[in-house]
C-alpha cells in the first residue's frame, strides 16, 4: 500500500463521507417522521388510512432500495416530477426507512399494556396527554434497540446512492479505481471510512441494548 496515494485521496474520501453522512442523516430523520406517522395511524387504527399505510409498508419492505431509487430517479421525472439526485437519495431512504421505523415504533407502542392507557384516561388525561406522558416514553425505550439497528441498516443502505450518480464513498472508490488503478488503496480507504461512520453507532447501539436488557426503569 502506498501511503502517499492514500494521503492524496484522503480529501476526496472525506468529502464523499460527508455526503454519505449528510444524506444518511437527513434521510433517516424523514424516515423517523414517516415511521412515527405510520405507527400512530396503526396504533389508533385510523380507518382507511391504516390500509394505505400497511400497503406502503409491504411495498417498502419487499423491494430493494436500489430499485426504489431507479424508479424515483429515472422513472418519476418522465411523469414530470423532476428530482435531483440528492433529493432522490433522501426520498428513497425515507421511503425505505419509514416502514422499518414504523415497525420498530409499532412494536414499542404495542408493548405498552392497555391498563396504562386506561389508568391515564381515568386520571382525566386526553388522548394526546396519554400518548405524550404515558405511552410514548415507555414505547420509546422498548423501540430503541430496533431503532438503532435501523439507523445502522439505513446508513449502510446509502452505499447504493452511487447508482444515481451521487458522489458518495462507493462512487469515489469506483471512480478512483477506474482512473488510477490503485485498487488496494482505494478499497482500504473505502472500508476505513465506512468503519469510521458505522463503528461508533454500532458500539453505542450495543451499549444501549445491553443496558436496556439489564434493567427497566429505576436502575
Amino acid at each position: 500500500m502506498d501511503g502517499e496515494v492514500i494521503m492524496s485521496y484522503l480529501p476526496l474520501y472525506g468529502e464523499a463521507a460527508l455526503l454519505t453522512v449528510k444524506l444518511g442523516v437527513i434521510g433517516i430523520v424523514f424516515a423517523i417522521i414517516v415511521g412515527l406517522f405510520c405507527s400512530m395511524i396503526q396504533y389508533y387504527k385510523v380507518p382507511v388510512v391504516r390500509r394505505i399505510v400497511s400497503v406502503y409498508i409491504e411495498i417498502s419492505r419487499n423491494t430493494p432500495l436500489l430499485v426504489q431509487l431507479f424508479f424515483i430517479f429515472y422513472g418519476l421525472p418522465r411523469l414530470g416530477i423532476p428530482t435531483d439526485a440528492e433529493t432522490c437519495g433522501i426520498a428513497g431512504l425515507a421511503f425505505l426507512g419509514g416502514s422499518y421505523m414504523a415497525e420498530a415504533f409499532r412494536s414499542g407502542l404495542e408493548s405498552v399494556d392497555k391498563i396504562q392507557t386506561e389508568s391515564a384516561y381515568s386520571l382525566g388525561m386526553n388522548r394526546l396527554q396519554t400518548m405524550r406522558y404515558v405511552i410514548l416514553p415507555q414505547a420509546m425505550s422498548v423501540s430503541i434497540p430496533a431503532f438503532v439497528a435501523n439507523v445502522i441498516f439505513l446508513l449502510k443502505e446509502t452505499s447504493v446512492f452511487s447508482a444515481i450518480s451521487l458522489m458518495d464513498l462507493m462512487f469515489t472508490a469506483k471512480d478512483l479505481m477506474g482512473m488510477d488503478h490503485n485498487t488496494v488503496e482505494c478499497l482500504f480507504l473505502l472500508v476505513s471510512f465506512y468503519l469510521l461512520i458505522l463503528l461508533p453507532i454500532s458500539i453505542v447501539g450495543t451499549v444501549v441494548e445491553r443496558r436496556m436488557r439489564r434493567a427497566g426503569f429505576g436502575n
Binding site: 452505499s159 462507493m170 485498487t183 478499497l187 472500508v191 465506512y194 458505522l198
Partner: peptide, 21 residues
C-alpha cells in the same frame, strides 16, 4: 461483526475488485 458492519456493496467491491488485485 465484520460482515455485519460493512455494507454488502462494500463486501462485493472487496471480493470483486480486491481479490483480483
Amino acid at each position: 461483526e465484520i460482515i455485519r458492519i460493512m455494507p454488502q456493496l462494500v463486501l462485493l467491491f472487496l471480493m470483486f475488485f480486491g481479490t483480483t488485485r
